[in-house]
Amino acid sequence: MSLSVTDLACARGPAQILAGVTFSVAAGQALILRGPNGAGKTTLLRTLAGLTPPLAGTIEADPDAIAYAAHADGLKSALTVEENLAFWASVFGTHDPAPAIEAFNLAPLLHRRAGEMSAGQKRRLSLARLLVTGRPVWCLDEPTVSLDVENVARFAAAVKAHLAGGGSAVIATHIDLGLPEAATLDISRFVAKQIRADDPFADSFAEGAA
């Protein structure tokens, strides 16, 4: 499953953040998004995920193909690891959580409540959700936050397995994930911060001359 984006303009609230974003990710490929803080990586990913409607341009991908992972883990601290995964499995249609548990080594934690785990462990559980979704295009926002070296490697292995299975991924990150074959896109060249073009208050409506 491929993802192809043409001339995309993204907004956050009243502000247009990015314009002219064009890239494509074929099946089996990964794209690393780079850019300084506040450049608009999160905004781009939220637009790809279908949460924020784009101002302009097209996203060629089935919206039901995209699995989105945000900064926030989206875990329920009162539920165990197993219950959290079972919940997402039922939301996305029944998929076997076993590969996800395996990939992120969650078996020892299975009956622990999410609220009792460390930030890194929570992150692993949150990433395991991606495997449970069964969706081919991953859009990930800083997936390695609070992961140690060993688990970053686990994550990279999971991404590689996903790509090898015909999936694709768009990953915003600052660190080197160890995915040498992945393309890199610096989004700072698409940054076009201004008042969004569909805002009729953006250009001056001089009353008389005032």
Partner: peptide, 13 residues
């Protein structure tokens, strides 16, 4: 509303 748009613009610049 125009004022809000301008202030947002200034903040981005």
């Amino acid at each position: 509303r125009r004022l809000k748009a301008l202030i947002a613009q200034e903040r981005m610049a």
